[in-house]
Design a protein around this nucleic acid. Structure first.
Lengths: 155, 155
DNA sequence: TTAGATGCAAAGACTTTGCAGTTAA
DNA sequence: TTAACTGCAAAGTCTTTGCATCTAA
């Protein structure tokens, strides 16, 4: 967990009078440690359980809701009705997702041009941008050419 | 329902050996008639029930799945875990959604520049674009200035 | 001390499915 | 004729919530 994340958490907790408890510590560690990949509620539950086998789903859902509300986690929909959470918007608030239809791998990317364009369009329509999210679903060129996709987990 | 939609439906049904039944007719009419607004499964159910009170959820879900798979409906996530379906991608396949945080109104827009950029980025990353969807969540300027949002249903 | 947090278990919302009967082609 | 379709009701999945108990500040 980066210092920045830790500070943001502190600020959020302070501002809302939230208490730091062991169950929450575990969930925060699971959410913001390591590679910072996005995860589903269930994946986060598994991660948290590895740290502390007593983690409960009720607390997890409640904590995730707090973090989303506080802007520390971004709710993203990667298709198929699966709700994921992205802990990376703190470090790179403008990133987008490319979802490989073939292997379901999600690739994060940033693009300044798109960000600027989105801003312009939003203002032109009479709004102030709050959050933006692009999902591009695409087919893997590699798979199409070679019959193999390096991201493909099975195969 | 436009002629184009009707033809696409026909093609889909032909290619998959699907049969046109009364329950399906009702659901198709509900989905593709009139203003072409996006809808949730439940909203579609209500619309369909207005046409034929015997519409069942089972058939509706099964039909929606077929249409999504066949590219006639686009599944979109407008946040808050609500899955909606958009029947407009047939007529305007490149449109995006701006979601007003204040009134939850969804505004559809197209932008050629963004479409082109998305294409470039996708290819640069080694993929072939399949479908793209942008969601911009934004605050209503009007509301901020005047305290009133013309889109706001309540107030 | 006490407002906030927890965890269980039950409830909820939404969607899918098995199956026996029905129907389009 | 028969493979496809339907609708019911039951089951599944994911998430939320009431409540009695616990605990951080």
């Amino acid at each position: 967990m980066t210092k920045e994340v830790r500070e943001k958490i502190q600020t959020l907790f302070d501002s809302k009078g939230l208490r730091m408890t062991r169950p929450r510590e575990v969930i925060l560690e699971a959410a913001f440690s390591e590679q910072g990949d996005h995860f589903t509620a269930d994946e986060l539950f598994e991660k948290a359980r590895e740290i502390d086998g007593k983690t409960s789903r009720a607390t997890l859902y409640r904590t995730v809701a707090l973090l989303v509300e506080g802007g520390l986690l971004q709710e993203i929909d990667l298709g198929r009705g699966v709700t994921s959470y992205d802990p990376n918007f703190i470090d790179s608030p403008h990133h987008n997702h490319l979802i490989c239809i073939d292997c379901a791998k999600v690739i994060e990317f940033e693009d300044q041009h798109i960000s600027v364009l989105e801003d312009c369009i939003t203002r032109r329509l009479g709004f102030t941008p709050a959050s933006k999210s692009i999902q591009i679903k695409a087919n893997c060129e590699e798979l199409r050419r070679t019959g193999k996709c390096r991201n493909l987990k099975t195969g």
